[in-house]
């Protein structure tokens, strides 16, 4: 296998408290290969988003990285200084947040938001940025006229696609998507994820995909890691996680999902 795009080694992250620390991530290790879609599954509070934030060094106190390495392109992200970090973000790793559609600035036009990124990180002028932005919007099936729009004039699905287009602006090696479609309907979700899948095949970037929807994850990902209370309890290729889950927790997650086909039976679990 060629060199991984992202390599996480023994990563431990605590949320520091007054009396005791909450161990959010416990000695987690995994790799993401070039062009691979890796899924991190688990329920609220299992540490999956904490890892996502740590990869772009977006974690803030009280989160504290106790130990471990996050290696992207041969460099440990944890060693980067402020200048290096600025160059690293967007260019090496770009991140789509859970409520990304609300992470656009409401008082700036879509064009200006593209310009922000393209000017700061690639030194483009207005005209260059506009041309590049139009090209990026085409990738996510949005007409270039939308550049003049403001976020509130676009639907939720459209805003989410705009955020994805901005994330692709500098051809990142890794796209992190933290519950990117949770707030969207199934049809829109499907459109967006299928588009991401096509784009990663076209451009070869890798994806770290985070969601609690295992069904969606098995459909989208090449490999999946399942997290439980800060630990990575099972890692395997997506179809094995689906057809032959080994860890009891993975089995429990599958068992608690109502299905669209097959026998209608009462599923157990989920009691308070």
């Amino acid at each position: 296998m060629s060199e991984p795009v992202l390599s996480i080694r023994d990563l431990s992250i605590d949320y520091v408290g007054l009396d005791s620390d909450m161990h959010a991530v416990k000695a987690v290790s995994f790799d993401i290969g070039p062009g691979e879609v890796f899924g991190l599954a688990g329920e609220s509070g299992c540490g999956k988003s904490t890892i996502a934030f740590a990869i772009s060094r977006l974690h803030r106190p009280p989160a504290l990285i106790r130990s471990g390495e996050i290696v992207v392109g041969g460099r440990n992200v944890l060693d980067l200084d402020a200048d290096e970090l600025r160059r690293f973000r967007w260019r090496d790793v770009a991140m789509v947040f859970q409520s990304a559609m609300n992470s656009l600035n409401p008082v700036l036009s879509i064009e200006t938001q593209f310009y922000d990124v393209l000017h700061t990180h690639a030194g483009m002028n207005r005209a260059e940025a506009r041309a590049r932005a139009a090209e990026l919007l085409r990738l996510v099936d949005i007409p270039a006229e939308r550049l003049a729009s403001y976020p509130h004039q676009c639907s939720g699905g459209m805003r989410q696609r705009i955020v994805i287009a901005i994330c692709l602006a500098l051809n990142p090696k890794l796209l992190i998507m933290d519950e990117p479609t949770t707030a969207l309907d199934v049809v829109v979700q499907r459109e967006i994820l299928q588009r991401i899948d096509a784009l990663r095949r076209q451009f070869g970037f890798s994806v770290l995909f985070i969601t609690h929807d295992l069904g969606l994850m098995a459909q989208m990902c090449d490999r999946i890691g399942v997290m439980l209370e800060g630990e990575l309890v099972e890692v395997n290729d997506a179809q094995s996680i689906y057809r032959r889950p080994r860890h009891p927790y993975t089995r429990k997650l599958w068992a608690s999902m109502p299905r669209l086909r097959g026998e209608r039976v009462r599923l157990e679990g989920g009691d308070a």
Binding site: Q189, R190, A238
Partner: peptide, 25 residues
């Protein structure tokens, strides 16, 4: 609506592509 429901039996990578419905949204 049904074709858009997440379904682990139809991974994107299997090249099933979009269903007729999805191509025609």
């Amino acid at each position: 609506l049904l074709s858009a429901v997440p379904d682990p039996d139809r991974p994107y990578s299997a090249g099933v592509g979009v269903g007729a419905e999805l191509a025609d949204i």
